[in-house]
Amino acid sequence: MVANGNAERLFPFKTSLNASTLMPFRLGLDQQMRIAAEAGYDGYEIWVRDVDAFVADGKSLRTLREEIGALGIAIPNAIAFFRWADRDERVREEALAQARREMALLAELGCEAVAAPPFGDVEGVQPHEFAQRFAELVKIGAETGVEPFLEFWGRAASLSTLEDTLKVLHALGNSGAKLLLDPFHMYTGGSKLESLHIVKGRNVGIVHANDYGELPPRETIADRDRLFPGDGIAPLNQLADTLHRNGYKGYLSLELFMDNYGDLGPAEVARHGLNKLKAAFSISPS
């Protein structure tokens, strides 16, 4: 239960911390995981580049996986950047090879999924083409045990809205594919919250949690301008209600890109973020 004035509101989701939120502190992957677990998060969303750095330092992923198990925290998703939907066929081939390598690496850590945004040159790529190319990622995911989540970016040349993404899911047919939702990208791309009403909870892989203010305006707002949930104007309570009605019970992952947090240290940022996330995404018990 989450206190809200004199009323008690429900929080029916799992919580996660995205590694981007802790970037200003330049921590190792093992330190990041420990901070998230001690703050009380259910999961931690890692970045592949941090996994690469961890391995480059000669550290063992098997040992880290054992430590993660002892911490009692999950890795529900990873952030990666491979050009799986690029217009250039040769680039796509290289991207699929990269995806296979990185998914295998993530599997060693017990990571369950990986984000698949429209990274690269995707201008003019049509929904049916995204669907065909995403299906190739799904196949690799089935082989490695790491499921790709289809993500839209508000500023992408294609696949910039929830509506675009739903067209791709439709083209995929009854595949059970899952999407990654992000209020910031919904805002910058002009997605409509009403479009989420038809999305079943089973088709949502993970939801990024963040907020945004009236300024800077939508045309110029940048990732670094993201706010803690509840500190801006995003309709987060409506988003939470819709997700809950649609049957989503998965992770909300706090994803910020702030340059610094003033006097707050990483543990304080993690705890503060968790409290803000739960308050902003809580729902009425009725």
Rank of each mutant, 00 (worst) to 15 (best):
P235I: 00
F184C: 01
D241E: 15
L239A: 04
Y212I: 03
R202H: 15
L227D: 10
H185F: 04
L169C: 15
N174R: 15
N237K: 13
I221H: 02
H244I: 05
K178F: 06
D223V: 01
D225Q: 07
I198F: 10
H185I: 04
L172S: 13
K178I: 00
H185Q: 09
E214S: 14
N210Y: 08
R224P: 06
L215N: 09
D164N: 14
I233F: 05
E163A: 09
G189A: 08
N174H: 15
N203V: 07
Y212N: 02
R224K: 14
K192V: 02
G176Y: 01
T188K: 01
T242I: 12
E194V: 08
H197P: 02
L181H: 01
N174A: 15
Y212K: 01
G232H: 08
D241C: 13
L169S: 14
V199R: 01
L215M: 09
L215P: 00
L181N: 00
K192L: 10
Y212D: 03
G189P: 09
G247F: 02
S195N: 14
L215F: 11
L243N: 04
D231P: 04
T165G: 09
V168T: 12
L180K: 00
M186F: 07
K200Y: 07
V168F: 12
L172F: 12
L181S: 00
T188E: 05
K192Q: 12
A222Y: 10
L193Y: 03
I198N: 14
S191N: 06
L193W: 03
G173E: 08
M186Y: 02
M186C: 06
P229Q: 04
V204A: 05
R224D: 14
L193I: 14
N210G: 08
H185A: 04
D231L: 05
N174D: 15
P216L: 00
N237G: 10
L180A: 01
K192W: 06
P217D: 13
P217T: 04
A171H: 15
L181P: 00
A209D: 06
H197W: 11
K192G: 06
K178W: 04
D182Y: 01
P183K: 01
G205Q: 07
A222T: 12
A171Q: 14
K167L: 15
A209E: 03
L239S: 03
L236V: 02
K192A: 12
E194I: 07
G247I: 07
S195A: 15
N203L: 03
G230S: 11
N246C: 11
L196V: 11
D164E: 13
L172I: 12
G230C: 06
Q238L: 13
G230N: 10
V207I: 08
H170F: 11
G205R: 07
H197K: 14
G201K: 00
L215R: 07
L180W: 00
N246E: 13
G173Q: 08
T188M: 04
G173R: 04
L227R: 12
A171G: 13
A234C: 10
Q238T: 12
D211Q: 08
R245H: 15
